Simulated scan of single mutants.
Amino acid sequence: MASSTLTKPQMQGLLAKGLGFHIGGAFTVTLGIAALCKFGVAESRKKAYADFYRNYDSMKDFEEMRRAGIFQSAE
């Protein structure tokens, strides 16, 4: 029978070793989500608002709402 020696398990520094990996992963995931929100949501929303207000006529919109009877005091 050949006896093989087992390696000693790491008992100290295990939390610090795992923490470095998890902090790096959390930072990477957070950056990815932030970039997705900025470019996927915020930029498209800014573009939609800019397109809407490029040709928006507030007086024309007011007159349409007044004719529809939405305003009671602007007869």
Rank of each mutant, 00 (worst) to 15 (best):
A2Q: 03
S3Y: 08
S3W: 01
S4N: 02
S4Y: 07
S4A: 08
L6F: 07
T7V: 02
T7D: 12
T7N: 07
K8R: 13
P9L: 02
P9G: 04
P9W: 07
Q10D: 08
M11W: 02
M11H: 01
M11C: 07
Q12S: 14
Q12W: 12
Q12K: 14
G13D: 13
G13C: 12
L15R: 05
L15C: 01
A16H: 04
K17S: 12
G18N: 15
G18I: 06
G18D: 11
G20A: 09
F21A: 14
F21L: 12
H22R: 12
H22M: 13
H22S: 09
I23T: 12
I23M: 13
G24N: 15
G25T: 09
G25S: 10
A26I: 04
F27A: 15
F27M: 10
F27V: 12
F27T: 11
T28S: 13
T28Q: 06
T28N: 06
V29Y: 06
T30V: 12
L31N: 06
L31F: 14
I33T: 11
I33Q: 04
A34Y: 04
A35Q: 04
L36F: 11
C37W: 05
K38C: 00
K38H: 06
F39L: 15
F39S: 10
G40V: 05
G40K: 02
V41T: 10
V41P: 00
E43V: 15
E43S: 10
R45G: 02
R45S: 10
R45W: 02
K46D: 11
K47Q: 11
A48T: 05
A48K: 07
Y49T: 05
A50Q: 05
D51Q: 10
F52K: 15
F52E: 10
F52L: 15
Y53I: 02
Y53V: 02
R54F: 03
N55V: 10
Y56R: 05
Y56Q: 03
Y56I: 01
D57M: 04
D57Y: 02
S58E: 13
S58I: 13
D61E: 12
D61I: 01
D61V: 10
D61R: 03
F62T: 02
E63H: 04
E63S: 04
E64I: 11
E64W: 03
M65W: 06
M65E: 13
M65R: 14
M65N: 07
M65L: 15
R66D: 02
R66T: 05
R66F: 04
R66A: 15
R66C: 05
A68G: 09
A68K: 14
G69K: 02
G69L: 08
G69P: 04
G69N: 09
I70T: 09
F71R: 03
Q72F: 11
Q72C: 01
S73R: 13
S73E: 14
E75M: 01
